[in-house]
Structures are given as structure tokens and as C-alpha cells.
């Protein structure tokens, strides 16, 4: 089980701030493919991965990163702080 978090317009499109996901996905890209196959709202949110960033256990990461040992995955758009 991993905790999956969504922020900003990803949270709005998917309609949830977080959920627990039972998955055997090996990489972030595999998890995205799994979620996108579930329902249209996921496919829509993940349609353009160039505008999506991912953090694994609260550290910025990449879509080809492995999920082994990861407890928390977060998806969000490019950050706009400051």
C-alpha cells in the first residue's frame, strides 16, 4: 500500500487530496499508467506529464524512479512559491 497525494489542479481534476493505493507498480510511470487506466479523471489529470512533477517520500523525483520501499508519492504541477 502506498499513500498517493495530489495537489493544485491535479487534486481538483482527480477530486481527492490523497488516497491509499494497492499497487505492484515498479516505477512512478507504471503507477501513473495504472491510475490512468482506472478512470477518465485520472487519465485527464495525467494527460500531459510534462506539466506534472512527482515527489517520493517528500523528495522531488522523476517518472522513471523505482517505487520499492516508497511510502508516499505526491503528484503536483510545477511549483509557484515565493
Amino acid at each position: 500500500m502506498i499513500e498517493v497525494l495530489y495537489f493544485a489542479w491535479l487534486r481538483e481534476r482527480i477530486g481527492l487530496p490523497r488516497e491509499r493505493v494497492e499497487t505492484a507498480a515498479a516505477t512512478v510511470a507504471d503507477l501513473v499508467a495504472e491510475l490512468s487506466a482506472r478512470e477518465d479523471r485520472y487519465a485527464l489529470a495525467f494527460a500531459d506529464l510534462a506539466s506534472v512533477r512527482v515527489a517520493l517520500d517528500q523528495e522531488l523525483s522523476s517518472f522513471d524512479a523505482p517505487l520499492a520501499g516508497v511510502r508516499e508519492v505526491a503528484f503536483f504541477p510545477p511549483m509557484t512559491g515565493g
Partner: peptide, 20 residues
């Protein structure tokens, strides 16, 4: 802070709301 701290801004105006 602008590009690596996880903050997201949303602007609300007369025409609705939009993520920055």
C-alpha cells in the same frame, strides 16, 4: 523558493479562478 518549494498559487478574479 519560487521553483523548488511545494507551493501553488491560485488567482481569483472576475472571470473565475486560475492556477498560476
Amino acid at each position: 523558493l519560487k521553483s523548488r518549494a511545494p507551493f501553488w498559487k491560485k488567482e481569483f478574479g472576475a472571470d473565475g479562478a486560475e492556477w498560476v
